[in-house]
Simulated assay, not measured.
Amino acid sequence: MGAQICSQADTEEPLEILRFHPEAKGAQVLLDAKRMSACRLATFHDGIVFSQRPVRPRERVALRVLRHEGGWHGGLRVGFTRLNPAYVPAPSLPPFLCPDLEQQSPTWAAMLPDACALAGDVAHFWVNRRSRLYALVNGGRRLLLRKGVPMGAPLWAVMDVYGTTKAVELLDPTASAFPTASPWALPEETPSDPEATAEEECAICLHCTANTCLVPCGHTHFCSCCACRVFRDTAKCPMCRCEIEGVVLARGPRARRTGEGLPA
């Protein structure tokens, strides 16, 4: 493929927010100006995209499914590769991440289950210290996708906007990069969300405190920024897919657990 595999010594990249690589992308991929979203224009393949920098050990890559398209079988693929996208000529990319790119290069990837790649779904994926590729969707149970992903050399995130997945958006998992949406049912001035303990953290960004309640389903697993973003983008609860009619601030740990804080 004319690609270059980097050694560990080549790798000191700045710790910047993850974006899509501007040139190493499938023939059908269109990136936005900030290289934070990728859309597949036609067909069901040729949607491979890479991160612009290597991920740090155990760094979580966060993305949101923006558009879902019926009529195909299978959807979003995620994983990691040792291919440095700076040396990957776009015309040399195969149409499929799995199995084509995996067979041609040191790449480890897998498809997310169809039910985990719908519009509005937020997925995190990473390699743990035991060289296992995991994914987490909407704060649900952890999914083991692959074993035996070596950690001794730089790894770039690689994704395939494939099949039913039409467009995706990279997110900053620290929540500071989640834009605050219009307040809707929230107060006009919502204070910035505090950092959370493991028991309290938002199921989407895994960083800020879960401090909202969705109406009418009552789920209380999300910080205000993420809840507003979901309300704006899909208006469907990530936990139960119920239609969201409003978002209110939950007050205190008991409100987060029981749904108290809903308007009468």
Results as ranks from 00 to 15, higher is better:
residue 1 M to Y: 06
residue 9 A to Y: 10
residue 13 E to A: 15
residue 14 P to C: 04
residue 16 E to G: 12
residue 30 L to H: 09
residue 33 A to I: 06
residue 33 A to S: 15
residue 36 M to G: 15
residue 40 R to S: 01
residue 44 F to Y: 05
residue 44 F to M: 01
residue 50 F to A: 06
residue 51 S to R: 02
residue 52 Q to G: 08
residue 53 R to C: 04
residue 54 P to T: 04
residue 56 R to C: 07
residue 58 R to A: 15
residue 61 V to L: 06
residue 65 V to A: 07
residue 66 L to A: 11
residue 69 E to N: 02
residue 69 E to Y: 00
residue 71 G to F: 05
residue 78 V to T: 10
residue 80 F to G: 14
residue 82 R to I: 03
residue 84 N to C: 15
residue 85 P to K: 04
residue 89 P to Q: 04
residue 91 P to H: 12
residue 94 P to W: 00
residue 94 P to R: 02
residue 95 P to Q: 01
residue 98 C to Y: 09
residue 103 Q to S: 12
residue 106 P to K: 05
residue 107 T to C: 07
residue 110 A to I: 05
residue 112 L to P: 13
residue 112 L to E: 11
residue 118 L to P: 02
residue 119 A to C: 07
residue 127 V to N: 03
residue 130 R to W: 09
residue 130 R to M: 13
residue 140 G to W: 00
residue 143 L to A: 07
residue 145 L to N: 09
residue 148 G to C: 01
residue 151 M to D: 09
residue 151 M to H: 11
residue 152 G to V: 05
residue 154 P to Y: 08
residue 159 M to R: 00
residue 160 D to H: 02
residue 162 Y to V: 00
residue 163 G to M: 01
residue 169 E to W: 00
residue 171 L to T: 02
residue 172 D to Y: 05
residue 176 S to V: 14
residue 179 P to N: 10
residue 180 T to A: 13
residue 181 A to W: 03
residue 183 P to C: 08
residue 184 W to E: 13
residue 185 A to M: 08
residue 187 P to Q: 09
residue 193 D to W: 02
residue 196 A to T: 09
residue 197 T to W: 06
residue 198 A to Q: 09
residue 198 A to R: 05
residue 199 E to A: 12
residue 203 A to W: 04
residue 203 A to R: 11
residue 203 A to P: 06
residue 209 T to V: 14
residue 212 T to C: 00
residue 212 T to K: 01
residue 213 C to H: 04
residue 222 F to R: 07
residue 224 S to L: 01
residue 226 C to K: 01
residue 229 R to K: 14
residue 234 T to E: 01
residue 235 A to S: 14
residue 235 A to V: 01
residue 235 A to T: 05
residue 237 C to Q: 03
residue 240 C to W: 02
residue 240 C to Y: 08
residue 245 E to Q: 07
residue 248 V to C: 12
residue 258 T to I: 06
